[in-house]
């Protein structure tokens, strides 16, 4: 729905394998374009300053904090959100491990956590605890870190 009378600013985004044209300014944070213009709300707003990682998505396969990336910077890149992580209806092994290990508490940070871990395992299929410590910097206020660590190892060994 276009509520505005102040002209349109179309942008084309490739999200979860689909090209989507949205009416959004180039300088809009990718996070808000994903949530409000594309309508995928699995990617969460936590801080808006790339500190907490709740908004983590993949851009050309790399984990990025989407609050710190503009629509202009994301145009033409392959973006994957939590909704697009399962391929062909089959959950990603990180999601499967998350369910098996009952990781989430409130769950609000977990979309970003899962996206960060999926990117880690793509680059480093068998991360050590030290590798995990270096790569996973997302905030979880509930404190699920113990289950996150166990589930990363479980996914790596799946």
């Amino acid at each position: 729905m276009d509520w505005t009378n102040q002209g349109t600013a179309m942008a084309s985004l490739k999200i979860n394998g689909k090209t989507i044209t949205v009416d959004v300014e180039d300088d809009t944070p990718l996070l808000w374009a994903i949530r409000e213009n594309v309508g995928l709300t699995g990617t969460k707003y936590g801080c808006g300053i790339a500190q907490c990682g709740a908004c983590t998505v993949h851009m050309d396969g790399v984990a990025m904090r989407s609050c710190g990336v503009t629509v202009g910077e994301a145009a033409g890149k392959e973006i994957t959100t939590i909704e697009g992580l399962a391929a062909g209806g089959v959950l990603h092994k990180v999601q499967t491990a998350w369910i098996a290990n009952d990781v989430p508490q409130c769950g609000y940070c977990q979309s970003g956590m899962i996206m960060a871990v999926a990117a880690l395992l793509k680059d480093n299929p068998k991360p050590t605890d030290d590798d995990i410590n270096d790569a996973i910097t997302n905030i979880c206020r509930c404190g699920t870190f113990q289950q996150v660590r166990e589930a990363i190892h479980a996914a790596a060994n799946a």
Binding site: G42, T81, E83, L85, Q95, W98, P104, Y108, I114
Partner: peptide, 14 residues
């Protein structure tokens, strides 16, 4: 309540 929290489907207030 775990599955929807791992797929992005869980609807929070926001």
């Amino acid at each position: 309540d775990t599955v929807d929290k791992t797929t992005g489907k869980m609807i929070y207030g926001a």
